[in-house]
């Protein structure tokens, strides 16, 4: 996809050019923003160490395969690759956990394979639903949530199903 690679370059150039025209210290602000992100990265590393170890142990024990086998009737019906089932389970619960499962999938399957692509689209098109709901409503002291969870999970489930459909549609796999 040459168009996308060009688009990324154009976005970077445009951001810097507009910044310069508007009198922004583009280098100073860039390093400031990069430093903020580095701090975030370091702060999530301990969670990533814990969860990647767990995910590695689970997949070495054969439990992930057992879960995939258990859900096989549903996933086969949807044409959903069983290798991506642990990712779909982890995705709404924990961001670092989902990253750990995604890393595991990419080390066992090529990122350009059907499974690698479905996993990429799945993690890219859904969010950490339970966490987001808990943080937002906890902070804003909302007690009566009505259809929030049902509607969020409807969106997630649609994302899971469409990650397979979109990969088939775009790549013809």
């Amino acid at each position: 996809m040459k168009v996308i690679e060009l688009a990324v370059l154009l976005i970077i150039t445009a951001i810097l050019a507009v910044g310069l025209i508007k009198g922004v210290d583009v280098f100073g602000q860039f390093t400031e923003g990069a430093y903020e992100t580095l701090k975030t990265g370091v702060s999530i590393l301990p969670a990533l160490i814990a969860l990647m170890t767990c995910v590695g142990m689970i997949s070495a024990s054969g439990a992930a395969d057992a879960l995939a086998e258990l859900l096989a009737p549903v996933t086969e019906f949807l044409g959903f690759p069983s290798e991506c089932v642990p990712l779909a389970v982890m995705r709404p619960i924990s961001g670092s956990g989902a990253t750990a499962v995604y890393e595991e999938i990419l080390s066992e399957n090529s990122p350009d394979s059907f499974i690698g692509r479905v996993a990429s689209v799945l993690i890219g098109s859904t969010e950490t639903t339970f966490y987001t709901i808990a943080v937002y409503f906890g902070a804003a002291k909302i007690k009566k949530t009505r259809n929030t969870l049902v509607s969020s999970l409807t969106a997630d489930f649609t994302g899971f199903v469409f990650s397979v459909l979109a990969v088939r549609l775009v790549f013809g796999q």
Partner: peptide
């Protein structure tokens, strides 16, 4: 993160 901070500051 750096690019987005520049974008933010540039309006």
């Amino acid at each position: 993160g750096g690019m987005m901070r520049v974008a933010d500051k540039a309006g």
